[in-house]
Design a protein around this nucleic acid. Structure first.
Lengths: 84, 84
DNA sequence: TTAATGATTAGACAAATATCTAAATAAAAT
DNA sequence: ATTTTATTTAGATATTTGTCTAATCATTAA
C-alpha cells in the first residue's frame, strides 16, 4: 500500500503508466518519450515495479515493461471504504 | 491531481482520513489519536485540505475537520482509464 | 483584563526523493 | 575479439518532506 501510493506520487511515473496503456514497451522506448536521462527513467521504472504496477521481462538486451492493472484493485478496495 | 496523490502518500494522513469516516472531529481530537505533536498533525491536515480531501470549519476556538469524499471521484476517474 | 485553551505559523533539522554523470553489466553486431 | 547498444548501478547533489520546539493568533474563562 505504501509502495503503491509512493509510486503514484510522481507525475512522470503516472505518465509512464499512461503510456504503457498502449502496450508493453522497452525501457529505452519509454525513456525516449521523456526529457529525463535513461538512469532517471530506469529508477522510476524500478519504483513502479516495486509497487507491482509494472512487470518486466528481459528480451535479449532489451527489457520490456508491461502495465499490471491488477494492483489497482487494491487501491479500489481502499477507496471503497470511504464510499457512502 | 498532484496534491491528491501527495496527500495520500503518507500513512498518517491516510489514517486521519480513515478516522474521519466516523464523523467530523476537531484538530485536537484528531491529534490525540496519534503520537505526533499538534503542529505535525496540523500540517498533515493542511495537506489534506490542499488536496480537498477534508474541509474545515472554525467553531469558536475549535477547528472541525470533515472528510470530503467527492474528491475520490477524481481518483476513480483516473483509475478508470486503466480498466480493461 | 488577564490567564488558559485550541490551533496554526515559523524556523530548524534529519531523512527521503528526483535528478544527474560516470561506471558497470550484458547482449548483439562487426 | 572488439565495439556498439540497451540498461542498470553507484555516487553526488539539490529539493522536498516529516517532524520537532518555540512563538503567535484567536477564543473562552476567571
Amino acid at each position: 500500500m505504501n509502495a503503491l501510493f509512493k509510486a503514484l506520487n510522481d507525475p512522470t511515473r503516472r505518465a509512464i503508466l499512461e503510456r504503457l496503456r498502449a502496450g508493453p514497451q522497452t525501457a529505452g522506448a519509454i525513456a525516449e518519450q521523456f526529457q529525463f536521462s535513461a538512469p532517471t527513467i530506469s529508477h522510476h521504472l524500478d519504483l513502479l515495479r516495486q509497487a507491482d504496477l509494472v512487470t518486466s521481462q528481459k528480451q535479449g538486451q532489451f527489457v520490456v515493461y508491461t502495465l499490471n492493472m491488477t494492483v489497482f484493485d487494491e487501491l479500489l478496495g481502499w477507496l471503497y471504504q470511504f464510499k457512502s
